[in-house]
Amino acid sequence: MKANHCLLIGFFLFLSGCDTETATNAEQASEAATLPADAPALGTKIQQLTGSGAKTTSQTGEYPQIAWEDLELPGHGLEDIVKKYQPQIDAIPEGDPAEEAVMDKMQAELNTAPVNPAMNGKKIKLPGFVAPLEIDESNGMVGDFLLVPYFGACIHLPPPPLSQTLLVKPKTGKSIGMERVYEPVWVSGTIKTESTKTDLADAGYKIVDAAIEMYQEPNDETQ
Rank of each mutant, 00 (worst) to 15 (best):
M1K: 13
M1P: 14
M1C: 13
K2S: 14
G10N: 12
F11Y: 13
F11P: 01
L13F: 11
L13S: 07
L13R: 07
F14P: 00
G17Q: 02
E21M: 11
T22H: 10
N25W: 07
N25P: 09
A26C: 06
A26D: 11
Q28L: 06
S30C: 10
P36H: 08
L42M: 03
T44V: 01
I46W: 01
I46K: 00
Q48S: 09
S52G: 06
S52K: 05
S52F: 01
G53V: 03
K55S: 13
S58H: 13
T60L: 11
T60H: 08
Y63M: 05
Q65F: 05
I66A: 00
L71P: 08
E72P: 09
L73P: 04
P74V: 03
H76C: 14
H76L: 13
D80E: 06
I81N: 07
V82N: 10
V82Y: 14
K83I: 07
P87D: 04
P87A: 05
I89F: 07
I89V: 14
D90M: 11
I92N: 05
E94D: 15
G95K: 11
D96M: 10
E100N: 12
E100P: 01
A101K: 15
M103L: 10
K105L: 06
M106Q: 08
Q107N: 10
E109A: 10
L110G: 00
L110M: 08
N116V: 09
K123M: 02
I124G: 00
I124Y: 01
K125F: 04
K125L: 11
A131N: 02
D136G: 06
E137R: 13
E137L: 14
E137N: 11
S138T: 10
S138L: 14
V142P: 13
D144T: 06
F145T: 05
L147V: 04
P149Y: 00
F151I: 01
F151N: 00
H156Q: 10
H156T: 04
L157I: 00
L162Y: 05
S163N: 11
T165R: 01
L166N: 09
L167G: 09
V168M: 02
P170Q: 03
T172G: 09
K174P: 11
S175W: 04
E179H: 02
R180Y: 06
R180I: 09
V181M: 11
V185C: 05
W186D: 00
K192G: 05
D199W: 10
D202N: 15
D202I: 06
D202L: 03
A203S: 14
A203D: 04
G204T: 03
I207C: 01
A211V: 12
A211C: 06
Y215D: 13
Q216F: 12
Q216I: 13
E217C: 08
E217A: 14
P218E: 11
P218K: 11
N219M: 15
D220H: 12
